[in-house]
Simulated scan of single mutants.
Amino acid sequence: MTTVLPEQTSAPGSATSESVPRLRPALVNGQRIWVECPIWCVEDHVAASERHLEDVCHTSGAADLVAPREGGPSQLLLLSRLIAGTGSAPEDRQPLVTIDVDDVNGMYLEPAAADVFADGLVAFAEQVRALARTARDA
């Protein structure tokens, strides 16, 4: 839920529980307001400077899957984070797990689907380890 309050000089009280949202400043159409953020949100809503209140979204820190490259820098393969909107409907505020392949292609998964995806990653990791063992033993 998004709460619009008049501008204040300091943010209201801090949350002590991981499930308690907190109010943070946001810039919407040039107007400074306060929005209710989930505890996991790391988005700088002032820097994002959205045009419309419904464009404000919450994002978490990212989990990265990086692959080493022979003779070069590591390459980011996947990144995952939480994202939630601020719309008035409850489904708009439900956090989803994003799996981003690059800046253009990504998936938005509900928690149960994210668990299935993670199970697939574990199985994939086991197959990669088996391939590495085979290559070492060859």
Rank of each mutant, 00 (worst) to 15 (best):
Pro95Ala: 13
Thr2Met: 03
Glu43Ile: 14
His45Phe: 07
Val116Ala: 14
Arg136Glu: 13
Glu70Ile: 10
Ser74Val: 00
Asp102Pro: 00
Thr86Cys: 11
Thr16Lys: 05
Glu126Thr: 09
Ala63Cys: 14
Ser80Ile: 03
Gly72Asn: 08
Asp44Trp: 05
His58Val: 06
Arg24Tyr: 03
Pro12Asn: 10
Val101Asn: 04
Ala62Met: 14
Thr134Gln: 15
Gly106Ser: 09
Asn29Trp: 02
Ala135Gly: 09
Pro6Asp: 08
Glu91Gly: 02
Val56Glu: 07
Pro25Tyr: 10
Ala132Ser: 05
Ala48Asn: 13
Val128Leu: 15
Ala130Gln: 15
Asn105Phe: 07
Leu5Phe: 07
Ala123Gln: 12
Ile83Ala: 07
Val35Gly: 01
Asp55Gly: 07
Ser49Ala: 15
Ser17Trp: 04
Pro68Gln: 04
Asp119Trp: 08
Trp34Val: 01
Gln94Pro: 00
Gln75Asp: 03
Leu23Ser: 06
Leu53Lys: 10
Thr16Gln: 07
Ala48Ser: 13
Gln75Asn: 04
Tyr108Pro: 01
Ser80Gln: 01
Trp40Leu: 05
Ala84Lys: 02
Thr16Gly: 08
Arg81Met: 06
Val28Asp: 01
Leu27Gly: 02
Val101Trp: 09
Glu18Lys: 13
Ala113Asp: 04
Ala123Asn: 08
Leu77Tyr: 03
Ile83His: 05
Pro73Met: 06
His52Arg: 15
Asp119Thr: 06
Leu53Asp: 10
Pro95Ile: 14
Gly120His: 08
Leu27Val: 05
Pro12Thr: 09
Pro38Leu: 03
Gln31Ala: 14
Asp137His: 06
Leu53Cys: 07
Asp44Arg: 06
Pro68Thr: 06
Pro25Ala: 09
Thr98Ile: 09
Val97Pro: 01
Ile83Val: 14
Arg136Asp: 12
Ser17Gly: 06
Ala125Tyr: 09
Ser14Asp: 03
Cys57Gly: 08
Ala125His: 13
Cys41Gly: 12
Leu121Val: 14
Leu27Phe: 02
Thr59Phe: 06
Ala114Arg: 08
Val20Gly: 03
Asn29Leu: 00
Gln31Lys: 15
Glu43Thr: 15
Glu18Ile: 13
Pro21Met: 01
Asp137Arg: 13
Trp34Phe: 15
Asp55Arg: 10
Ser74His: 07
Ser14Asn: 01
Gly13Val: 06
Ala62Phe: 08
Val116Tyr: 08
Thr2Gly: 02
Phe117Glu: 06
Ser19Val: 09
Glu91Arg: 04
Thr2Phe: 00
Ala84Val: 00
Pro38Gln: 04
Thr2Arg: 04
Gln127His: 11
Gln127Tyr: 06
Gly72Cys: 04
Glu70His: 11
Pro90Cys: 00
Val122Lys: 10
Pro73Tyr: 02
Ile33His: 01
Asp119Val: 01
Ala63Pro: 03
Ala15Met: 00
Pro68Asn: 02
Val66Ala: 07
Thr2Tyr: 00
Arg24Gln: 11
Ile39Lys: 12
Pro95Gly: 09
Glu50Asn: 11
Thr59Gln: 13
Ala67Lys: 10
Pro111Met: 09
Ala11Asn: 05
Arg51Lys: 15
Arg129Asp: 10
Gly71Phe: 03
Asp44Val: 07
Leu77Gly: 01
Glu50Tyr: 11
Ala138Met: 08
Gln31Met: 12
Ala84Cys: 01
Leu77Asp: 02
Arg129Leu: 14
Arg51Met: 15
Thr134Cys: 11
Pro25Arg: 10
Asp44Glu: 05
Glu36Trp: 00
Val4Lys: 07
Leu23Lys: 03
Pro73Ala: 14
